[in-house]
Structures are given as C-alpha cells and as structure tokens.
C-alpha cells in the first residue's frame, strides 16, 4: 500500500535519512536554544521550530493526520496563545542570568544527565524492532482508520476529553475575568473626568509626526520631544528606537512610512 505522504523505495530511504538527521539536529538545537534564550518571545519561536520538525516526523512515520493536527492545532493555536499571553505579560520581562537558588543549576544538569543515561539504558534494553507492517484494521486511509478507532474503541475517552475542553474554556473565561472593584463609569462620568483632567484631548496616536508610524513609535510633541502617552505602557517597556536617525534611502517602489 502506498500513500502519497509515506515515501517508499531506496531513494526514499536516503531522503528519509537526510530529512531525519537535518530535522533532528535542528529540533535539538532549537530546544536547547529555547531553554537558554533570554527573551521569552525567542523561546516561543524556537518552540515553534521544534513543533514543526515534529510534524514532519509524524508525517514520516505514517501519521499524516497527526502531522496536520500538530501544525494546525499545536503550533498554530496553542503556541499563538502563548504569544498572546506574552504580549499581555510583557515582552520586556527578560530573565536575568543569575540563578537565585543555590545549586539549582548544578543539580538540574546532573539530574538531566542522569535521566538521559537512564532512559538510554531503557532504550538499549528494550527491544525496538523494525517498523511493523500496517494491519488490515486500518482500512484504506489513515484518517478513516483513526476515526474508526476513536468512535468505537476510545469513544469514552473521546467524550471525556470533550467535556474537558468545555471545562477548560469556561475555566479560562472565569479565571481571566476581572471583577470590577468599582462601579463601571458611565459615558457621562468618563467625559467629565476627561474634561477635568490635564489633557482633555484624546491621546496622541503612536507615530504621529514621527518618522515611522509603528505601534511602538512614540508621537512627537510640538517641541520635538517624545510623548510617552502615545505608546501603550506594555510596549513602552522596551527601549524605543531613536527618533534621530536619518531617513533611510527607500528602495524603489516604497513610500515613506512603509516598514
């Protein structure tokens, strides 16, 4: 049985070998980078690299459905969720290198090595045979075989998992919900506050009168200084690019203001 995704034949062998080795090294490097990177966003992106490599591996191993689910759900949804929360929490919150707990790094490294050794021993002792033949229960395609299994043998787990999903969604809503500690100000109250405050006019938008109109570019005040009010405080945690740099030579076809 051939499958469009599962490669077969001797040429396929070398391709597979090559694919494996490149992606394996890439994913290990990305994983190491993930745990060592200082900025959280870099960690998220490196994790995306690992996940995508894994998707290819799933495809190589005769699990195409899983491969796509990995890309769509895991990388596309879960990881993006991570990024959104990073935005909320603060991109600038970088970990300091200094370890506060004494001996944590050493013990973590030792335990990691020990775990590696032990699991290698497990692999060494376990009989890992070659890939077995696909049995007839699969049917013709991977997806329908999986569906068949889900809705007959594992239907109970399926139902429970759906209940779990609903619970998780509701739970997230509950947890992220903010209770109002003070009554919601009406529009009239907001307007009164605005008039009474120091700046009755709307806040300047970012990039106003600036050379660039990025979200993180502060607006310029009439005297040329930057207005901190124009940039979201979350973003303003980062050092802002200087306003003094001269305009670049724009490549042909682009207008000023495109980034």
């Amino acid at each position: 049985m051939t499958h469009p995704i599962i490669l077969a034949g001797p040429a396929a062998e070398t391709t597979r070998l090559l694919a494996y080795w490149i992606l394996a090294i890439a994913s290990v490097a990305a994983a190491l980078g993930m745990i060592l990177a200082r900025r959280a966003v870099h960690c998220a992106l490196l994790l995306a690299v690992v996940m995508l490599s894994l998707a290819v591996f799933y495809a190589m191993e005769g699990a195409p459905f899983l491969a796509f689910v990995q890309i769509i759900v895991y990388t596309g949804a879960v990881l993006m969720l991570f990024l959104f929360v990073l935005m909320i929490v603060g991109i600038s919150s970088a970990d300091s290198i200094i370890e506060t707990i004494r001996g944590q790094r050493m013990w973590a490294a030792l335990t990691g090595i020990a775990m590696l050794v032990l699991l290698s021993l497990v692999i060494g002792h376990a009989v890992i045979g070659p890939a077995g033949p696909s049995t007839a229960q699969f049917g013709n395609s991977n997806v329908s075989s999986l569906a068949h299994l889900i809705f007959t043998k594992y239907v109970f787990q399926f139902e429970i998992t759906s209940a779990l999903l609903i619970t998780a969604a509701v739970g997230a809503m509950v947890l992220a919900h903010r209770e109002r500690t003070s009554p919601k100000p009406t529009q009239r109250e907001l307007a009164e506050k605005r008039i009474a405050s120091a700046h009755p006019t709307p806040l300047p938008g970012p990039g106003t009168y600036a050379l660039h109109n990025a979200v993180d570019m502060p607006a310029l005040l009439p005297d040329g200084s930057q207005s901190e009010l124009s940039v979201s405080p979350v973003i303003s945690g980062r050092p802002l690019p200087s306003q003094e740099e001269p305009p670049r030579e724009l490549p042909a076809g682009q207008e000023a203001g495109d980034q």
Binding site: W107, A108, T111, M115, L118, L121, V122
Partner: peptide, 15 residues
C-alpha cells in the same frame, strides 16, 4: 527539581 530527582530514582529502581 526534587520531583524530577525522585522520578529519576524511580526509573533507576525499576531498571
């Protein structure tokens, strides 16, 4: 860390 160390010891014992 202690949980991980415990897990390692457990695996070692099983081995």
């Amino acid at each position: 860390l202690s949980m991980l160390v415990g897990a390692v010891l457990l695996v070692g014992a099983l081995l």
